[in-house]
Design a protein around this nucleic acid. Structure first.
Lengths: 263, 263
DNA sequence: CGACTAGTTGAGGCCAGTCAATGTTGGTGG
DNA sequence: CCACCAACATTGACTGGCCTCAACTAGTCG
């Protein structure tokens, strides 16, 4: 349909990252090939067994890297969706916007996460992805991904797994938002982060939050003051230690015990 | 991999519907072929243009129908996931379960909806699907669906659209649960139902709810008493007319105006 | 240094939850 | 056909958890 090289730059033109409210976006697009075969996050992006020949085929797929500075948007609501993105470095938040301007953080994404899955259906993004710090993502043009998936059943299955897992993840957040008390929500949030850091080889008990209290609140359906108060209370109770965005989880068992406790 | 006929009954053995709490499930599985080509809900299940030859191929895919009686579970949390299901008749709810037993309704599904999308990733269902009335679904064995999708790019794309749309839908519910007031939530719920009935050729202003107040409440993050009170208030204000589960929307504009109004 | 953003903490209010009593509906069996 | 029962729904009184508003502090960046 579209010539391989060209389609990529078209995709970029359409989904050009830009600082919200800023007039002229400054983005670095590295055309230097990053080979999946030597990429340190490969086992996160491509979890099931692909042999080296198959990985080589995926290498062809990966169009380029995009570098984002803190605050830059990778894509915004309504942008045409032409690609998925694999987080190589840094982290992002995705937010859904209501018509009246209300914002809901739909997810926080770090190393190895695949984002942009929501745009495939309608052809344009239903949410916005924004870098929480300096960030790098690999671009996976979706049309090429579909083509390749037809030849590589394991890749096809992988893709379905990513989509399906995202649905399961969202269901769990719905459970949190729909039926948990403030305490529980924050405990779930912290334990979830802990788990994800652990899986990536970082400390699961000591990390730096990349988002503000307000952003945390938006994610778990609370106001920023409530988040702040709960952090303080958890600290008083010896569950955690907080110093601004630096968090240390002191008592994982107690945190887990909070979840499921009725009022 | 698995012989076509056998794999189907295996799938049924694994995901056998059963009444919750009932000792012996009574399910009707009709082995009679329903041909997609003559199915009245085809344009809902298969939205993009497939030619008649391609539809014939999908016919081969559809394994059987499952009949469910009100209350029967199509699948439950933890059941191995081997198929997607297309709703041919009736309606279902899907619910997520917390470890402590709390239940959150994740969605209501009617004519033409595809469910079971959450199970693909992990290989087992992360939620439970239960019939709200007498219901019939078509079984789409997932392995065969993946095989066929490799030969039929439009089908492949369709599948991705379904998965992606489910994600977008979930994001919108997260927005609702995370940042809307009770009034707004119920207005969104009613307008969403209205819209879906309209798209299916039913009245968009007069319909019968298939779920209890408690189930509505679970879906939108409210208690059943709050749902009941709001229905009464909407009626007093002339927005709707309620008689048990029969609902008539009298003022769609006013209902839409509710959404986005800050406390 | 001043302006700004992010975070903490307190006082008070309100929306939705809780508890409880009563009404309504639909299915079942005598 | 009607009596009965269980599930569902409505409504009221009260409570409480989280939000709102507001003051203050701590960093950060030009």
């Amino acid at each position: 349909m579209t010539p391989p090289a060209k389609s990529l730059s078209v995709a970029f033109g359409a989904t050009a990252p830009r600082t919200l409210g800023a007039p002229a976006p400054v983005i670095s697009i590295s055309e230097l090939k990053i080979h999946c075969a030597t990429c340190s996050v490969r086992e996160l992006c491509l979890p099931v067994g692909l042999n080296s020949e198959e990985v080589a085929q995926i290498d062809v797929l990966v169009g380029a890297r995009v570098r984002l500075r803190k605050g830059d948007a990778l894509y915004r609501v309504g942008d045409p969706s032409a690609a998925l993105y694999a987080v190589r470095l840094g982290s992002l938040k995705t937010t859904v916007l209501a018509e009246d301007g209300r914002e809901q953080v739909a997810g926080y994404h770090m190393l190895g996460d695949i984002i942009g899955l929501d745009g495939i259906g309608s052809g344009h993004h239903g949410c916005q992805a924004q870098a929480l710090e300096d960030t790098e993502v690999c671009v996976l043009p979706f049309e090429r991904l579909e083509d390749l998936a037809r030849d590589l059943p394991p890749l096809q299955h992988n893709l379905h797994q990513f989509l399906s897992r995202e649905i399961t993840r969202d269901h769990n957040i719905m459970l949190l938002l729909g039926s948990m008390r403030a305490e529980e929500r924050l405990a779930v949030f912290l334990l979830n982060l802990s788990d994800r850091y652990r899986k990536r080889g970082y400390s699961s008990t000591e990390f730096v939050l990349r988002m503000t209290r307000e952003e945390i609140g938006s994610y778990v359906g609370l106001k920023l003051e409530t988040v702040s108060r709960l952090f303080s209370r958890f600290q008083e109770e010896g569950l955690i230690q907080v110093q601004g965005r630096a968090v240390k989880l002191l008592d994982l068992t107690a945190l887990k015990r909070i979840i499921g406790q009725r009022g």
